[in-house]
Nucleic acid binder design. Structure first.
Lengths: 222, 222
DNA sequence: TAGATTGTTAATCGATTAACAATC
DNA sequence: TAGATTGTTAATCGATTAACAATC
C-alpha cells in the first residue's frame, strides 16, 4: 500500500488545545451556577478547583488567560465570572442546531428538554424513514433532501450526526456544503471535513471500552 | 561520577494519561478493522496516522509502548496488531454492564444493539418509575433497591449513570458500595468516588457548547 | 497588622515531534 | 542493493505546577 506524498500537517493540534481549555471553562461555569444556587456570591480558586478536580493554580491561570479577574483576599465574584464566561461563550445568543438521524440517540436528543436552558435549540431533525417524519411538532422532522434548505433558511451552523456509519460521511458532506461549520458526531468514524469545520466525536462504546480497561488495570495493580 | 541504575521502572503515569493513550489505541482498533474489511492485511503507520488524525511517529510510539511490533519495510500486520489490542483490552471476555435510569439516554442505550459486537453486555437496568419496570425482556428493568443484589449476583463492575442530576451521587454511592469499579456518567455533575473507582463523564451539552465556541472562534479569525 | 488569596513569572515535567540508526 | 519503514533516543514545546510578590 503506497501512501500519498503530500506533506503531513496537524491542523487539529492547536484546536485540541483550545477545546481542552474551553471544556474547563464550561465546567467552571456549571460549578459556579451550582454554588450560586446554594446562596454563595463569592468563591475561591481553591474551592472551585477542588470541585472540578484541578489545581487552584490551574483555575487562576485559566481565569487570568480569559481575563476573568478575581479579588485578592476575597476571591472571585461568582456573578462577575459567570457574566464574563457567558459573554465568552456567547451565551446571550440562541444557538440553532439541526439533527440528522432519528434513531435511538436522535430520539433521545429530540426529547431532551435541557438545551434551551443553555441557550441552544434543536430546530429540526432529518430522517430517511417516512414513518419518522413530523410536521407540526416542537421539533419537526423532514426528509434528508430538505436539509440544505432548512440549514440555509434558518442560518444554522451547528449539526449533530446520529445516522448509521455507512451514510455519516455523505450526510456530513451535505451539511458542510449547506453551511454547517461545527458537527457533533455520534457515528463511529472519523469524518473528513474542510479545515474550517470543527468536528467533535462522541462514542459511548469507546468510552465504555476505555473505562473497562482502566478498571481492570486498577484491579491488577492492587 | 554517578552511573545509571540497572533497573528500569515505568514511571507511575496518572490516570488521565492512560485514558488518553487507551482512547487512541481504541481508535486504532476501529481503523484497523475498517482496513481489514476493505481487504488489506498490512498497514503502515503513516496510513493509520492520517486516518485518525495523529502523526505517524505517534502511532509507532504508541504501538511500541504497548509492545505492538511492526515489520520494517512491510509495516504492521493488521491481524497481529488487532490480536494484541484485543488481548490488551481483554476483548476475549464478555464485560457486563448495568444501567441506572431509563430516561431518554437510558432508553437509547437499552435499544442499542452494538454492545455485543464489542463484547459488552447490558445485563440490567434500574428505574424508580414502576411503569418502566420489565421482567422478561432482553434487558430486564428492576427497581433501584434491587441494584445491589444484581451487581453482586452477576459480578458486574461497570455501571452507567443516566439518572437526573439530583439523585446521581446517591445512585453512584450505591453502585460503589455494591462493587462497581468503573462508572460512565451522563449526569452533569462531578461524582465523588473513592480513588480506586474510575469515572468517565459524557455531556452532550458541554460538547455542544465547546463546539459552538470553537465554531464562532473559527469564524472570527477568518 | 497578620494572614490569606490572587496573579504572574519561572521551573518542571512529560507528551509530542524530530532525527536517525536499524533493517527488511 | 536502494529505498522505505520501523523503533528508539534526543530535542522540543507547551501545559501544568511551584514559587512568590502584590495586595486586600
Amino acid at each position: 500500500m503506497q501512501h500519498k506524498t503530500e506533506t503531513y500537517t496537524h491542523p487539529q493540534k492547536n484546536r485540541e488545545m483550545i477545546k481542552k481549555n474551553i471544556q474547563r471553562i464550561i465546567q467552571y461555569r456549571m460549578c459556579l451556577l451550582k454554588f450560586q444556587n446554594l446562596g454563595f456570591d463569592r468563591i475561591f480558586s481553591y474551592t472551585l478547583a477542588q470541585e472540578i478536580g484541578v489545581s487552584p493554580e490551574q483555575v487562576r491561570k485559566d481565569f487570568s488567560q480569559f481575563n476573568l479577574r478575581g479579588n485578592k483576599k476575597a476571591g472571585y465574584k461568582i456573578q462577575e465570572i459567570l457574566d464574563s464566561i457567558n459573554e465568552l461563550l456567547h451565551k446571550e445568543d440562541l444557538h440553532k442546531i439541526i439533527l440528522a438521524g432519528l434513531g435511538n440517540i436522535g430520539k433521545a436528543l429530540v426529547q431532551y428538554k435541557g438545551f434551551i436552558n443553555r441557550n441552544m435549540q434543536l430546530v429540526a431533525g432529518f430522517d430517511i424513514d417516512p414513518a419518522k417524519l413530523k410536521k407540526n411538532c416542537r421539533i419537526p422532522v423532514f426528509p434528508p433532501d430538505e436539509m440544505a434548505r432548512v440549514i440555509r433558511e434558518e442560518k444554522v451552523v451547528i449539526g449533530i450526526i446520529a445516522v448509521p456509519e455507512q451514510v455519516a460521511q455523505e450526510i456530513c458532506n451535505q451539511m458542510v456544503e449547506a453551511g454547517i461549520r461545527g458537527i457533533l458526531n455520534f457515528a463511529p468514524i472519523m469524518l473528513k471535513t474542510p479545515p474550517d469545520v470543527t468536528v467533535q466525536n462522541i462514542s459511548v462504546c469507546n468510552e465504555l471500552e476505555a473505562l473497562i480497561y482502566m478498571t481492570e488495570k486498577q484491579e491488577e495493580t492492587k
